[in-house]
Computed example of a mutant assay.
Amino acid sequence: MKPAIFLDRDGTINYDAGYTYKLEDLKIYDDIIPILKKYYDSGYIIIVISNQSGINRGYFTVNDMKKFNDGIKRIFMEHGIVISDFYFCPHKPEENCECRKPKTGMVEQAVKKYGIDLKNSIVIGDRDDIDGELARNLGIKFIKVHGYSAP
């Protein structure tokens, strides 16, 4: 079993333009590549987990999101980092689903699919109130990047 980096997308990998889905808006944070390269080269698998309520709000489609994710995947591959999978929650907060972070549904799916060593895995994200809470719900380490603060 390998540990994983459970990686938030918008605000962590890429700048968040607000319901970001257009490839022309894809701008990767300069610091995230070396952070992930270190973990990837140490044997961690990289899993992106992202709340994408813009889908259920009608702002963009699943296909639009997948094209954006493919752009991220290509950039990471250029730096020798393979993203094993992308998990997303299309639901709005008021839908109260089990997959929306900080609930653990997406991580549980990934653990089951990939046989992940959860106790040695890490959540990396920009929001303590969502990504940090996810890590606490899982009982694993959280690394906060880019200094987002909840209003």
Rank of each mutant, 00 (worst) to 15 (best):
85 D>W: 08
108 E>K: 12
100 R>S: 04
109 Q>D: 07
104 T>D: 06
130 I>N: 13
121 S>T: 11
127 R>Y: 14
118 L>Y: 05
117 D>P: 08
85 D>A: 14
129 D>W: 07
126 D>K: 01
120 N>G: 15
110 A>D: 09
124 I>K: 01
100 R>W: 05
110 A>Y: 10
83 I>P: 09
94 E>P: 05
118 L>N: 05
116 I>T: 07
105 G>T: 03
120 N>I: 13
104 T>S: 08
91 H>S: 04
93 P>M: 14
124 I>F: 02
130 I>T: 15
113 K>W: 02
92 K>I: 07
102 P>W: 03
101 K>M: 03
114 Y>S: 07
104 T>N: 06
106 M>K: 02
123 V>E: 13
109 Q>A: 05
87 Y>I: 02
123 V>T: 12
86 F>S: 01
86 F>H: 00
125 G>C: 08
96 N>T: 10
112 K>M: 11
112 K>R: 13
102 P>R: 01
126 D>Y: 00
120 N>H: 15
121 S>P: 09
126 D>T: 00
111 V>C: 03
114 Y>K: 10
105 G>M: 00
125 G>V: 09
83 I>Q: 09
115 G>F: 05
111 V>H: 00
112 K>F: 11
90 P>A: 01
93 P>A: 14
122 I>N: 03
92 K>V: 06
119 K>C: 10
115 G>D: 10
103 K>D: 11
111 V>Y: 03
84 S>C: 02
97 C>N: 08
123 V>G: 12
99 C>W: 12
113 K>L: 01
110 A>R: 09
85 D>H: 12
98 E>K: 13
133 E>N: 11
93 P>H: 14
97 C>D: 08
